[in-house]
Simulated scan of single mutants.
Amino acid sequence: MARVQGLLVRAGFDWFLLALMGMILLAYLWPEGGLDKEPISLGDVATYGVSLIFFFYGLRLSPEKLRAGLGSWRLHLVVQASTFLLFPLLIMPLHTLFEGTSGELLWLGTFYLAALPSTVSSSVVMVSIAGGNIPAAIFNASISSLIGVFVTPLWMGLYLSAGSGDFDMGQIMLKLVLQVLLPVTLGIVLHRYWGGFAERNRKQLRFFDQGIILLIVYTSFSESFARDMFSGYSIGDLFLLGLGMIGLFFLVYSIVHVVSHLMGFGPEDRITAIFCGSKKSLVHGTVMSKVLLPDANMVGIILLPIMLYHALQLLASSVIAQSIARRAGLVTKGE
């Protein structure tokens, strides 16, 4: 049990999830704080913080490591296809079930989750514990974040452009270039100068990332609560959403596991494929919502699926990684 708890902490299942719930509660009790423009607009702070998050991400992204990871192209293809094709194609057919109902926004949030890139830190941690291909995990999680800058808005444009007159793909792409792609590129260019600084201060930068995410969650849910956007949903609806998220995780996990066997992957590559291909990034989901979603009132609802999926994927994958490690003799039963 102590081993699992330590694994959860390393993967990000710690105070941060409690803080996220705390921000939602604060937004419910005091939505005015997230809406007020004086003395300072928390929404504006979060917007500028998004660009800094991606700049620091670029600083930590070593071009040498990316080049070194190009070799296992079949493994990379499976992971990226799972992340950006399998997930959305599993969720798309369900739209007809929720179209025109109160559950349509939750479906849209689930589709947004499906269109997001893979998470970096927890994927690498789980692959490491289970004895997988760590360099390939780092490469896939990193390249997934870059691909997501372009692919996520393209997927979302299929539904947002049809349902909202405010969605302008040209405007969205311009915002992505200025707020995401340009900071990432600048960070990569400056990696040779400041990359060491970013690595040495990785923990502090992680706290900065989490602080900005908490701000985004607070301001987004403040908008939603102030506009009474949650009035049509019950506790039962959220419970069913949670069941759906854990079901989605195990469905994708199983499909990738079967595909990896059919493609003849060795044990290390199979482990990397199933963990990297079944994860989704809360960080990217939260920060990109500031750029992609035109209606601030609905952001809180749309973020619910990714927040639930994030927590459940950490719990499920940590148990699975521990089980794989035990079977491989990497840890003893008592650990």
Results as ranks from 00 to 15, higher is better:
P294G: 05
C276M: 05
K290P: 09
S122K: 03
K175C: 09
L75M: 11
S121Q: 13
F208S: 05
L190D: 13
S254V: 10
S145Q: 15
I271H: 04
K175V: 06
I255M: 01
L330R: 09
D168N: 15
L308D: 04
Y253C: 07
E199T: 09
T47W: 02
W194C: 15
D269S: 04
L243Y: 02
L105E: 08
V258K: 14
E38R: 03
G244Y: 08
L8F: 06
L240E: 00
L186T: 02
S161E: 01
A81Q: 06
L243S: 06
S317H: 06
A130L: 12
V252F: 01
G242Q: 02
K175E: 07
L105M: 09
V287S: 06
G131E: 12
L146C: 10
F265T: 08
R200K: 14
M307Y: 10
F250M: 06
R200W: 00
G247I: 14
P183W: 08
I134P: 11
T272P: 14
S222C: 07
L251F: 00
V217T: 06
P93H: 03
G196W: 03
L42M: 05
V319Q: 09
T185F: 13
A114F: 14
L75V: 09
R206G: 13
E99T: 07
G103N: 02
V184H: 12
A162L: 12
V9C: 13
T83W: 03
M263T: 10
I91R: 14
S317P: 06
L304I: 13
F225W: 00
S82I: 13
I129D: 07
M288L: 15
I213P: 03
N297Q: 12
G195C: 05
M229E: 08
A328Y: 04
G71T: 10
G196K: 02
R192E: 06
G329E: 02
H257L: 04
Y57D: 15
V291H: 10
V78E: 14
V189P: 04
R60P: 04
A273K: 11
E104W: 02
A325F: 01
T47C: 00
F16S: 07
S254W: 12
E223T: 07
L75F: 08
L116D: 01
S41G: 10
L146M: 15
M288H: 03
G300S: 09
Q204H: 07
L182F: 14
G329L: 01
R270C: 04
R327S: 08
L85Y: 04
S142K: 11
S260L: 13
L35T: 05
L205Q: 10
F207R: 10
M156S: 05
A141P: 13
G22S: 01
V151G: 10
Q171C: 12
A316V: 13
G49Y: 11
D14I: 06
I246E: 01
V287L: 10
Y233L: 13
Q210W: 14
W155L: 12
G232R: 01
P39K: 06
D295P: 11
F230Y: 02
M23W: 01
V319F: 11
P63E: 06
G100P: 07
S323L: 07
G103A: 11
A27M: 13
